[in-house]
């Protein structure tokens, strides 16, 4: 079978799996769900890793470093923040930093 066909089959099946799994998440956990899935789409970092090897020229390398950095922020930040939130749902007290600096916007590219 054509590999593209297989990939599209995976795409469709994964959509249904995602729908089924996520439908069962209660309202209470919607914010952690959102930030958890948010971390998961940081999987695009793999794209950056794969392309880095093939890249040539300063521009491409620069853009890919940015892409990898973006993806890493997405993954690492997403999972950590979700973990922090979920610990609260467990009812365990943790020290909350009283006045946190605002997250810095990393919109540069």
């Amino acid at each position: 079978m054509d590999s593209l066909v297989i990939l599209i089959a995976v795409l469709v099946l994964a959509g249904f799996v995602g729908y089924t799994v996520i439908s069962k998440v209660p309202n209470t956990l919607h914010t952690p769900l959102m930030s958890g899935t948010n971390a998961i789409h940081g999987i695009v970092v793999l794209g950056g890793l794969l392309l880095m090897a093939e890249s040539s020229g300063f521009l491409e390398k620069l853009l890919l470093v940015i892409a990898v950095a973006f993806g890493t922020i997405n993954v690492v930040g997403g999972f950590l923040v979700t973990d922090r939130m979920l610990e609260m749902f467990k009812g365990k007290r943790r020290e909350e930093p009283a006045a946190a600096p605002k997250p810095d916007g990393s919109e540069g590219s």
């Binding site: 990939l7 995976v10 994964a14 799996v17 995602g18 996520i22 899935t37 998961i40 695009v44």
Partner: peptide, 13 residues
Amino acid sequence: PVMIVAGMIVGAS
């Protein structure tokens, strides 16, 4: 494939 599955889970959610 892992990008496809992960991306679709997020898309569905």
